[in-house]
Design a protein around this nucleic acid. Structure first.
Lengths: 347, 347
DNA sequence: CAGCTTAGCTACATCGTTTTCGTGTTGATA
DNA sequence: TATCAACACGAAAACGATGTAGCTAAGCTG
């Protein structure tokens, strides 16, 4: 086992000073050609690489980004991480991932654990518990300490920072409009409780679409699921709620605010003997593996998670590397969406 | 924006020395009660937290783990990451994620980027390209430098390090045996090319099961998909290969080495008018979202990815924190598997 | 009262790097 | 020959924290 060489050992070995070695490796013109070559050759031979930690301490920047998400076993979030990684790596940044598991406490711990110099900035999608508790002090304090935050998907209006979102309202309008155009007479929505911003906004879009088509909004057709935690865990609960929903409503068009709700609704509908898309048309939100491989393949809205990730990383790194005296104003980037036509809708 | 206070500013503010502050905060008995209280109160007021980077430099350990995986938009890998995170966080470690995208070059870059002091050890699942090229110098060099590596799932026999695997051979035997017991007369397997260790081993298990039941092995029934990269990208290619396979083989039982192959095979079979599980029984490997939500829900083998992650983190952290003089011998942990009975098999 | 202990604090080195500010030597110039 | 620039390099500070060793004053003992 050979230890990583440091400037000091190279210096001693070649009988020059540490500063000379450092300068030679950085190709400073202060150092003579001969010495430079000697040092470089030696460094190459022993595979010298500057110690990142020492550099971080000196430069007061770590070149790593902290990403905090509610869960990682989740297609959308991992797609976003891919995008973040891609852009970040390209710019020489590393990505350190923290999981909140939708828990406020874990979110706070993660933030504190990383805010002690380990990272230069955060990219975060807020936990449901945080959203419902409306306790954002950890976020504002972090920003206060000069650590920039970029929020994506689940954002908080009250906090001033860069944000990357999708136009949930407009997108949902489009989806519901598509159902209307496909001759659906009774369109329902399966959404989340209102404290989840995306659920609220998508419901808003659903209502807008109905209204602008002169359709009266029937609040029984709006199902708001209360899944505080990982929804995969209480699948039966979800199925039961959807089952009850179908018992009391005769829908022929359904808009679900995520894949799982859509897939589960399809499953329940199938059990009731409904044929998709003949008896019931379905549109989901988020284009994940489930949608693509479902039977029948689900018509859904692609959020372009990869682009969201890239954009979030870009916003963050831009801010980190902005050397201007004046602070840049905060930006909110809206990533465009797209309806992926598959087989759960007609037309 | 208030900057993070350092020991130095606290010291100056309270007119004591830096060491006094440090010791007071660590509750050293060298410092008088009065001074301690004063310092602690001040530190609390200004929310002092020791700078992680400085600590890392001093202690020569970063308390972060580097995880390098082929892709992150993948249920199994994210489940493993969850397990790693869970155990690591518990022990006060952070997790930094690198993606190889199945590329040898990216794997090397990621390793080098992190091996410069940023992390204390690696947890890695090797890229397909690395496996097929059989070039492991980056791994052995890393270990040589004293940075421990734990491999999981896709491991390399030639490299000596801790490993976490599943008993692929035995597990596959069990799965195929189940098909035999369910009266399948012609059982096929969809696997990967042999350089992917898990594909090779699972094929081995398939062959073992047939042999031990006195069934002659027909090599036409063994389909080895060559997907060097993310298999989601060349879905048509996969479908085509499976389609051809079904054209030339009349199988009534199918074992697939991953979810996607299983689901895709089911889709192709359905197109051919086959009914599942009546005409064709299917068992997959890896219990992901696809299996659970497929139609019909897929009988599959759970690898317990979460436990694998926890175990990998445990092996790594144990080694890192082992203060004994002698090196511990390398361990290979075999995580148990389980067949999840769903609706693509009879019985 | 010399000598010793001890409480309570400070100085300093250290981790690995970069960077500023010297400093000594050479060769050229006035 | 004194002066000066250019060259090639070294010493030291700095980043933030920790720990060892050293120092001072007070209190005690014989």
């Amino acid at each position: 086992m050979k230890q990583k060489p440091t400037l000091k050992v190279i210096a001693k070995e070649l009988d020059v000073s540490v500063s000379t070695v450092s300068k030679a490796l950085r190709d400073s013109k202060e150092i003579g050609e001969e010495t430079k070559n000697k040092v470089k050759a030696f460094a190459k031979l022993y595979n010298y690489r500057p110690n990142n930690i020492a550099l971080s301490l000196k430069n007061k920047k770590t070149k790593t980004l902290g990403v905090i998400i509610p869960e990682i076993v989740h297609h959308f979030f991992t797609t976003v991480i891919s995008g973040i990684e891609h852009y970040a790596n390209d710019k020489g940044y590393n990505v350190i991932v923290g999981l909140s598991n939708e828990s406020f406490k874990k979110e706070v711990i993660n933030l504190e654990m990383l805010a002690n110099g380990s990272i230069d900035g955060f990219i975060i999608s807020v936990a449901k518990e945080t959203l419902s508790a409306k306790d954002y002090h950890h976020l504002s304090e972090t920003i206060d300490q000069g650590i920039p935050i970029v929020m994506f998907d689940r954002v908080i209006d009250e906090i001033e920072c860069d944000k990357v979102i999708v136009d949930d309202v407009k997108t949902s309008e489009k989806a519901v409009q598509k159902l209307i155009n496909s001759n659906c007479k009774c369109i329902g929505i399966i959404s989340t409780k209102d404290y989840v911003s995306v659920g609220r906004l998508r419901t808003e879009g659903y209502i807008n679409a109905l209204k602008s088509n002169g359709i009266k909004v029937n609040h029984n057709l709006i199902l708001k699921i209360d899944d505080k935690f990982n929804s995969d865990d209480n699948l039966e609960f979800l199925e039961e709620q959807i089952h009850n929903y179908f018992e009391t409503n005769e829908v022929d068009g359904l808009f679900a605010v995520n894949e799982l709700y859509a897939i589960t609704a399809m499953k329940v509908a199938r059990l009731k003997g409904l044929s998709i898309p003949n008896d019931l048309q379905v549109i989901g939100f988020t284009d994940g593996v489930l949608s693509k491989h479902a039977y029948p393949p689900l018509t859904t809205i692609s959020q372009h998670g990869f682009e969201m990730g890239e954009e979030a990383a870009k916003l963050l790194i831009d801010r980190l590397e902005n050397t201007n005296e004046e602070e840049e104003p905060f930006k909110t980037t809206v990533v465009k969406t797209e309806i992926i036509d598959r087989e759960t809708t007609k037309l």
